[in-house]
Simulated scan of single mutants.
Amino acid sequence: MQLTSFKTLEPTVLAAQAAWLQQIDLTPLLVYLLDMTEASSLPWLAGQLALTGING
């Protein structure tokens, strides 16, 4: 196996990874948009933002 064959494979692999990453829905990661956050995540988010306990 020659190193040149690996070098020609690299752009293809990177393109495939980029295409895969672009398909991921990042909406659930936008937790500070409270109106879009799932209700089950709200208690955890309130704790992270110090809105519960002695801070809340």
Rank of each mutant, 00 (worst) to 15 (best):
Leu9Lys: 07
Pro43Val: 03
Gln48Asp: 10
Ala16Gln: 06
Thr37Trp: 00
Thr4Trp: 10
Glu10Thr: 14
Gln48Glu: 12
Asn55Ser: 14
Leu45Gly: 00
Gln2Pro: 11
Pro28Glu: 01
Leu33Ala: 13
Leu9Gln: 08
Gln48Lys: 15
Trp44Lys: 13
Leu26Pro: 01
Leu21Pro: 01
Ala19His: 05
Thr52Trp: 01
Gly53Ser: 02
Leu26Trp: 08
Leu33Asn: 15
Asp25Trp: 03
Tyr32Gln: 11
Thr8Gly: 02
Leu21Tyr: 06
Ala18Cys: 01
Leu34Pro: 01
Pro11Ser: 04
Ser40Asp: 11
Asp25Ser: 02
Ala15Pro: 00
Leu33Trp: 08
Thr52Met: 14
Ala15Glu: 13
Leu3Val: 07
Ala15Gly: 13
Lys7Val: 04
Asn55Arg: 14
Thr12Asp: 06
Leu42Phe: 03
Trp20Val: 13
Pro43Phe: 04
Met1Gln: 10
Ala46Tyr: 08
Gln22Ser: 09
Gln23Trp: 00
Gly47Asn: 13
Ala16His: 04
Gly47His: 11
Glu38Gln: 13
Gly56His: 09
Leu34Ala: 09
Thr4Gly: 08
Leu9Asp: 10
Thr27Ser: 14
Ala18Thr: 14
Gln23Ile: 02
Gln48Met: 15
Leu21Asp: 10
Asp25Gly: 03
Gln17Lys: 09
Leu49Phe: 03
Ala19Val: 10
Gln22Glu: 15
Asp35Cys: 06
Pro43Ala: 04
Leu14His: 02
Val13Ala: 10
Ala19Ile: 02
Thr12Arg: 12
Thr52Leu: 07
Gln17Ile: 13
Thr8Cys: 05
Pro43Asp: 05
Met36Thr: 13
Tyr32Asp: 14
Ala16Asn: 11
Thr27Ala: 15
Leu42Arg: 01
Pro28Thr: 01
